Amino acid sequence: MKYALITGASRGIGKAIAVKLAKELQYNILLNFHSNIDAANATKELVEAENVHCELLQFDVSDTKMSENVLQDFRKNNPDAEIEIIVNNAGITRDGLFMWMKPEDWHSVINTSLNGFYNVTQPLLKDMLKRRYGRIINIVSLSGLKGNAGQVNYSAAKGALISATKALAKEIGKRKVTVNAVAPGFITSDMTADFDEKELKKMIPLNRFGEAEEVADLVSFLASKKASYITGEVININGGLYS
């Protein structure tokens, strides 16, 4: 059975990606979530409405041992499962001026986005390389490309993930495993719920926030065989804000 693993997939962009990969590419879904079991179950129902299997994997991607144990258990219990797609979507924000930033606000953001990429991708990579097929898609951010005041931690985490994307793409391209990053701008979600949309959209050439489904459309393309000659890229989806 072929699977796509999406981290942080109970809500928002992750949820939209899980449903889209089930619907368009007919992948069975491994849906990682941290704590919100009700949201995860609601997403599972939407995925399974597309006639594929969905398995919930509850773990904190920033915890190396926990991530490794859960992934190992899944592989042991499902020896025929082939994880062909990894979407590293889990991320958190702890915004504030760097001058006043507490150590836990720095480390928790870095650990989730950057170490989470390592903790999930590294244990699964060997199987992809053996099979000579795979898609690794990292959800980064406009902040990681241009920097954003009040988000030094988030910008650092996503900027590092962009560099990791490019380096890993060079390491494993010969094995037909691609690695790309998707950099959303302002997308309607829990993460942007407190933003002043009326003011911010004046900066955006398309004059609106994006939708999670639009990001999912791009991820679905990169996860498909149509994108087999695209690797090491960072693709912006931001309404022209950083073009």
Results as ranks from 00 to 15, higher is better:
K170H: 02
K170D: 01
E171N: 14
E171G: 08
E171R: 12
E171Y: 07
E171T: 09
I172D: 09
I172G: 06
G173K: 05
G173V: 05
G173H: 02
K174Q: 14
K174L: 14
R175E: 14
R175M: 10
R175W: 02
R175P: 00
R175C: 04
R175D: 15
R175Y: 13
K176M: 04
K176T: 00
K176F: 10
K176H: 05
K176D: 07
V177Y: 04
V177M: 03
V177K: 03
V177W: 01
V177L: 01
V177C: 01
V177Q: 05
V177H: 03
T178E: 01
T178M: 12
T178Q: 12
T178H: 04
V179E: 07
V179F: 13
V179P: 09
V179G: 10
V179T: 09
N180I: 04
N180K: 04
A181M: 13
A181Q: 10
A181L: 13
A181S: 15
A181I: 12
A181W: 11
A181C: 12
A181N: 10
V182N: 08
V182W: 07
V182L: 10
A183C: 15
A183Y: 06
A183R: 07
A183L: 11
A183S: 15
P184G: 07
P184A: 06
P184V: 06
P184T: 05
G185M: 01
G185K: 02
G185R: 00
G185L: 02
G185Y: 03
G185A: 04
F186Q: 02
F186V: 02
F186N: 04
I187D: 01
I187A: 04
I187Q: 02
T188W: 09
T188M: 14
T188C: 09
S189V: 08
S189D: 02
S189A: 09
S189C: 08
S189H: 08
D190S: 12
D190R: 13
D190K: 13
D190A: 13
M191H: 04
M191T: 03
M191Q: 03
M191E: 06
M191C: 07
M191S: 07
T192I: 08
T192E: 08
T192D: 07
T192A: 06
T192N: 05
T192M: 09
T192W: 06
T192K: 04
A193M: 00
A193W: 00
A193N: 03
A193L: 03
A193S: 12
D194M: 14
D194T: 15
D194P: 00
D194C: 01
D194W: 05
D194R: 10
F195R: 11
F195Q: 11
F195I: 10
F195V: 10
F195T: 12
D196Q: 05
D196V: 07
D196H: 08
D196W: 10
D196M: 10
D196C: 12
D196N: 15
D196K: 01
E197Y: 03
E197C: 00
E197I: 03
E197H: 11
K198W: 00
K198R: 04
K198S: 13
K198N: 13
K198M: 00
K198G: 06
K198V: 07
K198T: 11
E199L: 13
E199P: 00
L200S: 06
L200R: 11
L200Q: 10
K201P: 02
K201D: 01
K202N: 13
K202I: 09
K202E: 15
K202Y: 05
K202L: 14
K202M: 11
M203S: 12
M203W: 00
M203H: 01
